[in-house]
């Protein structure tokens, strides 16, 4: 599926988006962390898990309202990952 990165994640990955295959969000995150290591981990996680404000969307829908990390993915999906950011 298409994976989109935003804000500081673009600096860490050096990419705006890329194609990765995974059966669910959990597997996808494992693959991404394996590739980009500690900087990516620090952007998304603190000692308690996901940082407050991390957003992961499947086709624009927050995975919290789907099946969270167990949300199933297919090749036609788009996953968007945001570190905590805000504005207004």
């Amino acid at each position: 599926m298409k994976v989109q990165y935003f804000a500081t994640l673009r600096k860490i990955t050096g990419k705006q988006e890329e194609e990765i295959s995974a059966k669910n969000v959990d597997e996808l995150l494992r693959k991404i962390l394996e590739e980009y290591g500690e900087p990516f981990r620090n952007a998304l996680y603190d000692k308690d898990g996901f940082r407050k404000g991390v957003i992961i969307l499947k086709n624009g829908k927050n995975i919290l309202y789907l099946k969270n990390l167990e949300t199933e993915l297919s090749d036609s999906d788009t996953v968007s990952i945001f570190p905590p950011v805000a504005g207004g």
Binding site: T8, A43, P83, V85, A86, G87
Partner: peptide, 15 residues
């Protein structure tokens, strides 16, 4: 991370 990275780096238009 919002006030120390997101807003300083990208401004409000990060939204």
């Amino acid at each position: 991370p919002v006030t120390s990275q997101g807003l300083p780096t990208y401004g409000t238009a990060v939204l």
